[in-house]
């Protein structure tokens, strides 16, 4: 569990201004539904990411409502219009109010 919240964002190596780029993310999280039991037959309490914010520079460009119906170690992939050089930041928040953050710089050129 020590790795919970460890995240990776993948974007293309080379980006030109105006490109449509594929952004892939993964964050480590158990996404427990609260319906499964552990080895002692005790219910594992629900623990899942329920709010994701995506910022491009300082602008919030997307917000995702999630439930425990998203698979363990959530992945999400989408197409972004790379129209300026700025950091792309993901903020994942779970139902225990823990926040996990990761960012990658969008830069143009070779």
């Amino acid at each position: 569990m020590a790795e919970t919240g460890k995240a990776k964002i993948v974007i293309p190596d080379r980006i030109q201004q105006g490109d449509a780029i594929r952004v892939q993310t993964i964050v480590q999280h158990p996404m427990d539904t609260g319906f499964f039991r552990d080895a002692n037959a005790d219910l594992i309490p629900p623990w899942f990411i329920n709010d994701v914010r995506v910022l491009y520079g300082d602008t919030e460009i997307a917000r995702f409502e999630w439930t425990s119906g998203i698979s363990k170690d959530p992945v999400v992939t989408f197409m972004l219009r790379a129209d300026r050089e700025a950091p792309l930041t993901f903020v994942w928040r779970d139902n225990k109010d823990r926040e996990y953050r990761s960012a990658i710089d969008i830069k143009f050129g070779t």
């Binding site: 780029i21 919030e60 997307a62 409502e65 999630w66 439930t67 119906g69 998203i70 992945v75």
Partner: peptide, 20 residues
């Protein structure tokens, strides 16, 4: 299971994820 709230910063709607 999920709602993705988007803006025109998205070049098009092409979203992939994994669900239960």
């Amino acid at each position: 299971v999920t709602v993705f709230h988007l803006t025109p910063a998205f070049e098009r709607v092409k979203i992939e994820t994994r669900i239960k």
